[in-house]
Amino acid sequence: MNGWKRFTRGIICSLILIVLLAGCASQADNSKSGQTHRIKVAHYFAANHPQNIALREKFKDMVEKNSKGTLKVDIYENSKLGAEKEFYDGVRNGTIEMGIPGMIMQADIPKMAIPELPFLFKDFKHAKTVLQGPIGKELTSEMESKHGVRVLAWSANGFRMISGNHPITKMSDFKGFRLRMPNIPNYIALGKSWGANVTPLPISEVFTALEQKVVDGQENPIATLRASGWYEVQTHVLESRHMFSPNVYIINKKFWDKLTPEQQKVIEEAAQAAADYEWKLLEQSYQQDKKFLQENGLKFQSPDEQLKKEMETAANPIYEEFYRMNPSTKELIQKIKAAAAN
């Protein structure tokens, strides 16, 4: 009997322990689900750029509303938390929860350089189909393991064009032209292939460099040209459409793992909705931006067939070098080119 009593007491004690542990776990879950988080979102676009408008009107509104107040969003536009490298590193190390960089991570993750190879995308539809489909997922597949950030959505900066203080109508016009470009190898190689003197600068320093004539021109989508006020110190735009610049919504992985599944779903859905809205705004705004810039004195020109062909031919060695350094990417690039026909 004594043995039976000891056995019974052991069972009862075990059951009590299980109940207590379950209660503690439940309290921990409830504490986690009830926790309020502030999300800092950093990017380099001006306040009235479509990227920031989409963040403000879609992402912030949806996250705060659909999380029932457990998530708060603070948007830091116009490089307020540092230039692209600084805020990207901030998201990686967790001092900033979210960011919208360009392809600055390509130095460590070569696949992320692919979308910004010259003359790769035909139009917005082509770019969006590729980046928001399976190829886009393949491009970002190493972001978590290598950089500790989770990619939530692809958004767009747009097709890049060259603005300057004199017209560019032939290849020889690039000679001696001091062209600001981001400090990214593909960009620098492209500018040099045309014969320009490339000056790498952060986007936050471009206006001053143009105003003080440290550089003669820059290349960006015209939405950025307008939103950043660079039209005040430029006279001409070449509609070269030489490169498509995407952006990615990223979130620190450790911060992400602290969130409940419900909060994660809210953020994912809001990020995709905001990115879709931004694509729409950017594509629709092109003619409006062009008209505004023309009304403010900028002269637009399209490259003739000869100039366009010469610019593309000059860029071919960039692909050859990229394939040499990253031979496994050739098939992926061919898939992107083939998607233009669909």
Results as ranks from 00 to 15, higher is better:
175 K>V: 14
183 N>D: 10
307 L>T: 00
69 G>L: 13
231 Y>G: 10
204 S>M: 08
215 V>Q: 05
178 R>M: 04
138 E>A: 00
43 H>R: 12
229 G>R: 07
296 N>D: 01
290 K>C: 01
270 A>L: 02
91 V>P: 04
319 Y>A: 11
230 W>T: 15
317 P>W: 00
159 F>G: 02
274 A>Q: 05
219 E>P: 03
277 Y>G: 01
104 I>Y: 15
83 A>C: 13
207 F>E: 07
63 V>N: 10
68 K>Q: 14
92 R>A: 09
113 A>P: 00
160 R>I: 14
169 T>F: 01
41 V>D: 04
25 A>R: 15
278 E>D: 04
102 G>W: 01
24 C>T: 04
198 V>H: 06
301 Q>C: 05
72 K>I: 10
269 E>Y: 13
24 C>V: 12
86 E>L: 10
245 S>R: 12
276 D>C: 03
158 G>I: 00
162 I>S: 02
275 A>F: 00
49 H>R: 10
102 G>A: 08
312 E>T: 13
306 Q>M: 10
69 G>W: 07
239 E>N: 11
287 Q>Y: 03
313 T>Y: 01
110 P>T: 04
125 K>Y: 05
175 K>F: 15
37 H>K: 05
115 P>T: 05
215 V>I: 15
135 I>Y: 10
242 H>V: 00
46 A>N: 07
134 P>M: 07
214 V>F: 14
217 G>E: 12
279 W>L: 02
130 V>L: 06
36 T>D: 04
111 K>D: 12
95 T>G: 02
262 E>A: 03
182 P>E: 02
148 G>P: 06
208 T>A: 06
295 E>W: 07
247 N>S: 15
246 P>S: 08
117 L>T: 08
54 A>S: 13
132 Q>V: 00
79 S>I: 09
129 T>M: 02
162 I>A: 02
137 K>D: 13
63 V>D: 09
283 E>K: 10
311 M>N: 10
155 S>I: 02
113 A>L: 01
103 M>R: 03
289 D>F: 07
71 L>Y: 03
82 G>A: 07
37 H>E: 08
168 I>A: 14
32 K>E: 09
232 E>Q: 14
328 S>K: 08
23 G>H: 01
309 K>G: 07
336 I>C: 11
59 F>C: 06
275 A>M: 07
